[in-house]
Computed example of a mutant assay.
Amino acid sequence: MDFDFSEAQRRRYEEVLAGVRRQGPDLTGPGVPFARAEWLAAARLGMTGLCLPAKYGGGGLGALDTALCLEAFTEGGADTGLAFAVGAHLLACAIPVRDFGADPVRAELLEGMAGGELVAANAMTEDGAGSDVGTLGTAIVRDGDEYVLDGVKSFVSNASAADVFVVYGTSDRDAGFLGQTALAVPRHLPGISVGEPFTKMGLHACPAGRVEFSGCRVPVRYRLGEEGQGNAIFKHSMSWERSCLFALYLGQMRRQLDECVAHAKRRRQFGRPIGAFQAVSHRIATMTQRLESARLLLYRACWLLDRDRPDSQATALSKLAVSEAAVANSLDAVQIFGGPGYLAGTGSEAQLRDSVPSVIFSGTSDIQREIIARGAGL
């Protein structure tokens, strides 16, 4: 196994780092929620089209290279909420369109998604269907050359900003998982109502809210895959999301660790830098261990995906390790910074708030442990 980056990967990583730092506040301090100008700033770095085909204006990257760019994006200082919004758009929405959309619709949507002109939102979760995605109440009913879409989706990331929704619903109540269908639904269609963004603990730049579809008529050409293939399409997108999206937390942790080391060298108590005390130095050592072990698991999951060997246990191990490391490291960062770490606006508390939802979205930590246990033969 080769643990080193290629020259192209190193160059791309440095380009993203430099690009974030060059664009400054548009990426490091976006609005709440993000403004379209800030989204386009990310698009200029290629972030909104990393793994989309070059013929549609994308970067044509595989899973590992996509993850590396997301990692560099937040290491360079990009806001974690904005990075999450970009990742959700790309991995939960553009990937299903890329791999399951019909040709005319694929071209229509992917060019705008890659260039940042279109913002996409994934509409799977419902108030009564979170971890149990087999109980979707949203109905998708065929009526000639259209589908009639009825239902309410919740926790839709990018909802208020979205130009297109990737929606999953039930087209056959008697078929269980085989009765779900996926649609790409343009925002302009009649029968779509988008609620105000939720007030959340963290990831403030990414607006999340409810979306209601009431008698929304969607042309059949916007169906993704075949009828009844929705659950398989969702699992496919989750293999990309769980493998790649959490790289943005690797970048956050790398920047956070650098900040903690610099503070431990600078801050003095009892006549010496606090980094000279084992209570601090060992905490930083543990933070480093969590980051590096999580990074290896994530890179492995992406490596497998790039070789058409997606492994649900590998992605679950990666997602679990990265998300729980992000929370634990953020708690440690608050401790290292002490009183200032608890203050809003100094960085550490925001990193903690942004990390907490990582153990919930894309499958909770408990769901990941169930997948890992099944992979172990239980």
Rank of each mutant, 00 (worst) to 15 (best):
V86Y: 01
G62H: 01
L68G: 02
A67D: 00
A78E: 03
W39F: 15
G76Q: 14
A78V: 02
L68F: 03
G57Q: 08
T74D: 11
Y56N: 06
C69G: 08
L82N: 06
L52G: 08
G60V: 09
L52C: 09
L64G: 02
C69F: 05
A72R: 04
L40Y: 02
T80N: 13
G77K: 11
A43Q: 06
T48K: 04
F84E: 14
L70P: 10
F84G: 05
L64F: 08
L61N: 09
A43K: 02
G77S: 04
G62L: 03
R44M: 02
R44P: 07
E71I: 04
A67E: 13
K55W: 15
L40D: 12
G49Y: 05
G81K: 08
K55Q: 15
C51V: 13
G81P: 01
A83T: 02
A78W: 02
M47Q: 12
L40F: 11
T66N: 01
L68I: 07
T48N: 05
C51Y: 05
G81M: 07
L50V: 05
P53T: 08
T48A: 10
G58R: 03
A54P: 10
L64S: 04
F73T: 11
G58T: 04
T80H: 14
L40S: 12
G46C: 13
A78N: 01
P53Y: 09
L82M: 08
T66W: 07
M47G: 12
E75D: 13
G60A: 07
L64K: 09
D79E: 05
A85L: 08
A83K: 11
A83M: 04
D65E: 15
L82Q: 08
L52F: 11
L68Q: 03
A43V: 07
A63G: 00
R44N: 14
E71Y: 06
G60H: 09
G77E: 06
F84P: 03
D65S: 08
L64V: 09
P53S: 13
D79Y: 00
L82R: 01
G60L: 10
G62S: 06
W39M: 14
G76N: 14
L70E: 07
G77H: 05
A41N: 09
A83V: 02
T66A: 14
G62D: 10
G46K: 12
A41S: 14
W39H: 09
L52S: 07
G58C: 12
C69K: 09
L64D: 00
Y56L: 12
L61W: 11
E71P: 01
G76M: 13
A78L: 03
A85F: 07
D65I: 01
C51Q: 05
G49C: 04
G76I: 06
F84V: 15
A43H: 11
A72K: 00
T48G: 10
L68V: 05
G77R: 06
A43S: 15
G81C: 03
T74L: 06
A43Y: 03
M47A: 14
G76E: 10
F73E: 08
L61F: 12
W39T: 12
L64Q: 03
Y56F: 15
P53N: 07
A63E: 00
E75W: 12
A43C: 00
M47E: 11
